[in-house]
Amino acid sequence: MGPTLRKALDGDAMLDQPFSDHFRVGRLQDRIEPCGAAESCDCTVVGGAKRLGDCGASLLTIANERMVHLTLLSQPAIGLRGEAFALGPQGRDGTLMNLSFGFYLREAVATFSLTERDFAPADLAMELLYLQEAKSLVMQELRALTQRLDGARKQAETQALTDPLTALANRRAMEAALEQASAGAAQGGAPFTLIQIDLDYFKSVNDTLGHAAGDYVLLDVARILHEEMRAGDLAGRMGGDEFLLLLRGAMTPEQVMHLGDRIIARLQEPKWHEGRECLVSGSLGVVMSLDYQPPETERMLVDADTATYAAKNAGRGCCVLYRDLEMPKT
């Protein structure tokens, strides 16, 4: 028995004991097959009684295998692998095995407190341990890097889809959401409603009270729209003083008009910036996906715009359904 195995297994006490008391041929999970060479098996007779297949195979038969696996019965989580050679004719003089810990190396080193001295200088075990440890460190670093990059990418994505002033969705985000909603509705998914909002009198607030007041109004409008949205709805700023609401799910025209009136009422609530009143209102244009077969984003946006202009022409501060505009024509 070599010095490393001796150290690992209290070898002095093991000498002269039957092989099968300490080792099992095969891995732990391998099923023990009855010993193929039962008659000639050198481990089948223990204490005068036949113990068929205790070792899984006779020591002579494993000498014919290209590779042998052993499990340590005292440490079943650790296996050994290597080569077996029969000594003498028919293995009469015993079996010589050259073993290594294979991929159990790290566990074995920890379990048996092995050191550099326990491996032959020609053995690559130390290189393998070194490589494994270094690799784990590198992997840790790479994983942390991946996490940082992933976080940064998600943040950049969010920024690319958000209006920096109001934190509402920006035009790009709204168009993407709209494409998705249209595609869904075209395939028989949930219908949706679009409300375009043009602020009234915003330009005069900006011109007379300054940009700070204008920004203040835009922020307040964003807050109102945000509060009026249900889960699943999306509010976006399309640019300047133009906003768009995407309302998912079926709604009746009455429900939409009711919501529109409520939004207008809230937009008209007095807003005070540095002691000066900012008066705005909103002209709303509404299109509903159910009026389109199939719903096309571009067409719906054009129609919403038309309805919004109709609302402006009708005296501002009102909500117009595109469907009602078309009525007289049909």
Partner: peptide
């Protein structure tokens, strides 16, 4: 294949391949 789980564990501890046993 008996060794595949152990070998992949050496390379990538987080990759939990199934236990393979050839009979």
């Amino acid at each position: 294949l008996n060794e595949l789980q152990g070998r992949t564990q050496l390379a990538l501890e987080d990759l939990k391949l199934p236990e393979l046993t050839l009979r």
